[in-house]
Design a protein around this nucleic acid. Structure first.
Lengths: 218, 218
DNA sequence: TTTATACTTTTGACTAATCAAAAGTATAGG
DNA sequence: CCTATACTTTTGATTAGTCAAAAGTATAAA
C-alpha cells in the first residue's frame, strides 16, 4: 500500500538525489524527514521489499525505476497544487508549501490534470521549481546560486532553495521575487556580503543567504 | 489529536442525527462507517474520553457541543470542496463526493474561506445539501421526498439522499438534476411506481428510488 | 418468570509508523 | 594492525486504528 508516509520517503529520496546518481545515506534521509535514523532504517526495509528502492546496507539507498516514477508524480502533484493555490486562490506564495505538503497525498489524478489545464500547463511552480510533466519528464533551465554570481551581472531571480516562510517573506519584502531583475553591485569578501540592486531597493545579503537564491541570466 | 478518523466518526454522528435529538446506536454508527461494531465501541470510548460525545453504554451516543462544532466544520469543508470541484474545476457532480471525502481532512481554513469567497458564499452544494456557515449555523429549506409527493404536483428537485455515483448518473441521464422542474404524472400503488415528467423525458421510478430524491415546491 | 434474540462491549491479535537505546559496522588515524 | 568515531541497524516499546470472536446486557415473547 502506498501510504502518505511512503510517498514522503520516496519524495525525499528524489529531492535529495534528483539525478539518480548517488546513493542517499540513512542519516541524510532521516534528517530530511525529521525522523530518527532507526525509523528511516525500518522504512527503508519496507520500501526495499516493495521494490521501490535498492538498499546496500551501511552504504545507502537509491530509487528504483518504479520508486522514481512514484516520487516524480508526488512532486508533480505538490508543485501543481502550490501554483494553483497561488494563481487561482490568490494565496501568498510563502505559505503554500505546507498546504501542498498535505494535499499532494490526497488529490486525484483527475483533479491534478484539471488544475494543469486551468493553469495552462505550467512548467515552474511559485518557488521556481520545475513541474514534472504527466509522463514523468522534467523541464530544465540553467540556474546558479546568487553567491556564485559576479559583480555587474544582470540577473533574474529563478528559484529559492529555502522554503522557510520567514525567509521567503524577507526575500519578497526586498524585491527578490521569482522573475525579478537584479544587478550585483558589490561583493565584499571581508564582510562576506553581496550588495544587490533590485527594482526599487538595494539589499545587502550574507553569502549564506545568497546561496539560497538561484538566478539565471537576465 | 483530531485525526481524520476522529473527524469521520464525528461527521457520521452528525449526519445520522442532524438535529442532535436522538441518540445514535453503536450499530448504526458502525454501519455508516463500514467498520465492525467492536471498532465503533472502542472509538466511542476514545471520543467520550476526549469530551466529543456522550455515551450511555448499551443505549447510544450523542455529540457534545464541542463535538458537534467540529463535525459541522468537517461538513462545511466537505461541501465547499465539492462545490468548488464542480464549479471551478468543472468536475462531474456524481464524482466529487469521494474526492471531497479525502480533501475535507487536509484543507486549511484559509483555503476553505478563499474557496467560499470565489464561490460567492454558496448555501447549497451540488447535491442540494446545505453548506454550514463558518460560524457553524445551517441554512434551511423545506424539502420532502419524491415518494411522498402527490399526483399533479409541480416540483423542483432539491437534493439527493443517495451519494452512489451510479445512482447519481442514472438520475442525471433522466433529467433529475438539482433545480430541475418536474411534474408527478401518476402514482401506481400496485406497481409501487411513480411516473414523472421531466423537462424532456418521462421516467418511471420505484418508490424506493423515489425516496432517495428530495424535492420542494416549484 | 424465563428464555431467545439482537445488540453492545470486551478481549486479544494485528499493522503501520514511530522513538530510545543497545548493538553492530566501516573507516580514518595512529 | 588496532582503535576511536561516526554512522547504521536491531531491539523492544508505544500509539492509533482495525478485526474476529467471546462475553455480557436489554428486552420482547412465551
Amino acid at each position: 500500500m502506498i501510504t502518505s508516509t511512503v510517498e514522503n520517503y520516496l519524495k525525499a529520496l528524489f529531492l535529495l538525489d534528483q539525478h539518480g546518481e548517488k546513493e542517499v545515506s540513512t542519516g541524510e534521509l532521516a534528517k530530511s524527514l525529521s525522523v530518527t535514523p532507526g525509523s528511516a532504517t525500518s522504512m527503508i526495509k519496507t520500501l526495499a521489499e516493495a521494490g521501490l528502492i535498492e538498499h546496500r546496507p551501511h552504504y545507502g539507498v537509491k530509487l528504483t525505476e518504479r520508486g522514481r516514477t512514484l516520487a516524480v508524480h508526488v512532486v508533480r502533484r505538490h508543485r501543481i497544487v502550490e501554483l494553483f493555490l497561488v494563481e487561482i486562490l490568490g494565496m501568498d506564495w510563502s505559505k503554500v508549501h505546507d498546504e501542498a505538503e498535505q494535499l499532494e497525498h490526497v488529490v486525484s489524478d483527475e483533479v491534478i490534470e484539471r488544475m494543469d489545464v486551468l493553469l495552462k500547463h505550467p512548467t515552474f511552480d511559485p518557488h521556481g521549481d520545475p513541474i514534472p510533466r504527466a509522463d514523468g519528464t522534467l523541464p530544465s533551465q540553467s540556474h546558479y546560486t546568487l553567491s556564485k554570481s559576479k559583480v555587474g551581472q544582470q540577473l533574474s531571480v529563478s528559484r529559492m532553495n529555502d522554503q522557510d516562510a520567514d525567509f521567503l517573506q524577507f526575500a519578497e519584502k526586498h524585491g527578490l521575487m521569482i522573475g525579478e531583475k537584479i544587478t550585483i553591485v558589490e561583493h565584499n569578501k571581508l564582510a562576506d556580503s553581496l550588495t544587490i540592486k533590485t527594482r526599487d531597493n538595494t539589499v545587502i545579503l550574507g553569502l549564506s543567504a545568497a546561496a539560497n537564491i538561484e538566478v539565471c541570466d537576465a
